[in-house]
Design a protein around this nucleic acid. Structure first.
Lengths: 180, 180
DNA sequence: CCAAATCCGGAACGAACGGTCCAGATATGG
DNA sequence: CCATATCTGGACCGTTCGTTCCGGATTTGG
């Protein structure tokens, strides 16, 4: 969905309906007939983003030799995005969660829920890693999952702030160090 | 400055000049005479925020028994803010850096610079901690400083996403574990 | 005490916002 | 082939945006 890209690049509030129309290549009336309003279009876009991201992460996790290797690849690949256009976009979920904060409306709640979904996936990955013996078993799996979500949110924030690739990679490496 | 609070709570774009006038209790013409425009008012507010924050952090660092104790108190106090109104506000610097991203204009550049200033303060604190022997000396000080800034940005993002206090504290504790 | 300089409330500007609406284009099906 | 149903381009709505501007209030200084 093209609307996703617009919300991703500009944020919920700053994405105007005119931006959305231009990207989706449809007319105003079609948008309102098909989605009701801007809020529902955003919810649809965020839902699709989350579904796609979870699918991709789950596949990478399933295909990874170890859960630790999964986290290492995820963090290193993300850090290496530094200084690219892709890095400036960030992640729609973290972007939305920080923009909408505790606003209390549906978009805000859905963004928070999406962060929790990511943490849930990380939790499952950590448990696998602890069973495999690659991830320190003496630490609480849920706490590690929260820590890894925090790390990703922080890394994405640093990339948005313009941190250089080498520095992002060094910081990411230190996040990973806690797993061992 | 009252304008700071408005930018802090609502973000740069979402803070309307009418919001700002109401908070500052001045008239429209006074604002434009005194600050030129909204962008310059924001730069002023962000500058004051940064100065105040750096002063407070530096004092806490100077008064802390060890640099490690400084980081522990900072992270724990921040995590404990979870579920409060204060946590929903986040930090003006990280808020601005993530909202404005790599937009290239003055506000965006100033936000990125502010993040770097925080990292610089952390760098100095890490070096003191390594000299004192409380912080692992085998790790690069600059990398640790970047990691700690990343951790703070991540923690603030989690608080905005509505993470519970107990979970925020657990995650913060894991960030601190890397220092030892 | 008055003249001069400064300040400020509020009206007004053009532009952009999210959302509505209808005439005309397009597709459907008997 | 035409009647009917569906879709859509774009004008338009009221509101809000950042900014400008000016007449009148307030302060200042001699």
């Amino acid at each position: 969905m093209a609307a996703m890209q617009v919300f991703w690049a500009r944020g919920y509030d700053a994405a105007s309906t005119r931006d959305l129309l231009a990207a989706m290549q449809i007319s105003r009336s079609s948008l309102y007939q098909a989605f009701g309003n801007k809020e529902q279009l955003f919810l649809e876009a965020l839902g699709r983003y989350r579904t796609g991201l979870v699918e991709r992460l789950q596949r990478r996790l399933d295909e990874a030799p170890t859960a630790l290797a999964f986290f290492e690849a995820l963090y290193r690949d993300t850090a290496r995005e530094a200084e690219s256009e892709r890095a400036a976009l960030g992640c729609l979920i973290f972007n939305s969660a920080t923009e909408l904060g505790q606003r209390g409306d549906r978009p805000a709640r859905e963004a928070s829920l999406s962060v929790e979904v990511i943490t849930g996936l990380f939790h499952q990955a950590v448990e696998r890693g602890q069973a495999e013996g690659d991830i320190a078993a003496h630490r609480d799996a849920r706490a590690l999952a929260l820590y890894l979500t925090l790390g990703m949110a922080g890394l994405r924030a640093m990339l948005k702030a313009g941190t250089a690739a080498t520095e992002a990679e060094q910081a990411a490496e230190l996040v990973l160090a806690t797993l061992r």
